[in-house]
Design a protein around this nucleic acid. Structure first.
Lengths: 151, 151
DNA sequence: CAGATTTTCCCACATTTACCCACAATACCC
DNA sequence: GGGTATTGTGGGTAAATGTGGGAAAATCTG
C-alpha cells in the first residue's frame, strides 16, 4: 500500500532517489525491480513493482487485438513500459523518453497510489491538483460506490 | 470516539503535541500510528488512526480507475495520505506539503470528529465556524436523516 | 579492430532528519 | 501555599538520507 506526496529533485543524470520509507517495501515485494510506463490520461508516469505490472500487462495483452481502442492501449502502455532497478543508493534512472513525456526536469513529485506510484513534474502536479480541488463534486456524475463513501 | 476542540501551537520544526487526554486512546487503538491526508472540501487536514485509514483507502482504491471523478478522489486523498508516528513526547511531525495545504503556521486547532480528527489553522477554523453559524438552516435542504434528529 | 563515447555501477561527502534528553510551565494534590 | 507529577517546548547529536562525482565496463563508430 503506497501513499503520500514526496517532493524529489532529479540529479543531472536524471536519477530519482526513492524516499527511504518506501525502500524496504520495494525490496521486499520485488527486490528493487520496477516498471515505469506512461499514464495515457495525464502527462505523468506510472511506476509499478514488477509483479504488479506483469499482472496488468497480461490483462492488457488479453484484450482483443483487432479492436482499435485496445490496440491503442497496448501500444501506448506496453510500448512505453520500461524495466528499472534501484541502484545501491536507492535511486532510479528514469530514461530520457519517459522524462520527456512527463516533462520532468528537476523538481518532481512522487505520489503513492496504492499498488503503484505516479511521477509528476512538480509544476504539472500542482496545476492538476488545483484543478481537482476546484471541481465541484456535483459536476461529474459520481459512481454509485462513491455516493455511500463516508470519510 | 474523539471529540472536542484543542488549540495547539506548532513548534519551529512543524511538530504538534497531541493533547494528553487522547494519547492513551491513540496508543491503544493503533500504537501511535496515524495517517494524515487533506480534506478536499476545506483547507484542513484529516487525521486517522492507521486501521481506520486502511479501511478507507481500500474502498477508495476499489473505485473504477477510468472514471474521472474516482481518479480525482484517489489522487487527492491517497496521494496526500502520509503515515505519521507519535514521538516519545506524544508529538506528530506534520510534513511540509500538508502544512502548506492547510496553511498551518503556528496556532492550529485539533478538532475531534468521531473516528478521526481534523487539523485547522486557528484563523481558518474561526472564519469557517462563523460562516457556519451565520448560515440559516432553512437555506439548505436537510437530508431526510436529519429531519428526525433530536438533540 | 581500435578508439572514443556513453552508460552503469559504486563510493564518499554534506546535509537533513529523526530521535532523545533536559528544562520550563502548568495543573493537581496534599 | 508549597511540593510533586504531568504536560508542553526547545534544542543537540548521531544516524541515515540525498547528492555528486569518478572509474570501469560496455557499446558504437570509423
Amino acid at each position: 500500500m503506497f501513499r503520500g506526496v514526496n517532493p524529489i529533485n532529479l540529479d543531472a543524470k536524471g536519477r530519482m532517489a526513492i524516499p527511504a520509507r518506501y525502500r524496504e517495501q520495494i525490496t521486499g515485494c520485488c527486490d528493487g525491480s520496477l516498471v515505469a510506463t506512461i499514464d495515457t490520461e495525464a502527462r505523468c508516469l506510472l511506476l509499478y513493482p514488477l509483479p504488479e505490472w506483469e499482472e496488468i500487462q497480461a490483462k492488457i495483452e488479453a484484450l482483443p487485438s483487432f479492436n482499435p481502442a485496445a490496440r491503442r492501449i497496448q501500444r501506448l502502455l506496453i510500448g512505453h513500459a520500461t524495466d528499472l532497478d534501484m541502484d545501491s543508493n536507492g535511486r532510479l534512472l528514469l530514461p530520457a523518453p519517459l522524462r520527456e513525456y512527463a516533462m520532468l526536469e528537476k523538481r518532481v513529485v512522487l505520489l503513492g497510489q496504492g499498488r503503484k506510484f505516479e511521477i509528476w513534474s512538480e509544476e504539472q502536479w500542482l496545476d492538476t491538483r488545483d484543478e481537482y480541488l476546484q471541481e465541484v463534486d456535483g459536476g461529474n456524475e459520481l459512481p454509485d460506490e462513491m455516493q455511500s463513501l463516508s470519510l
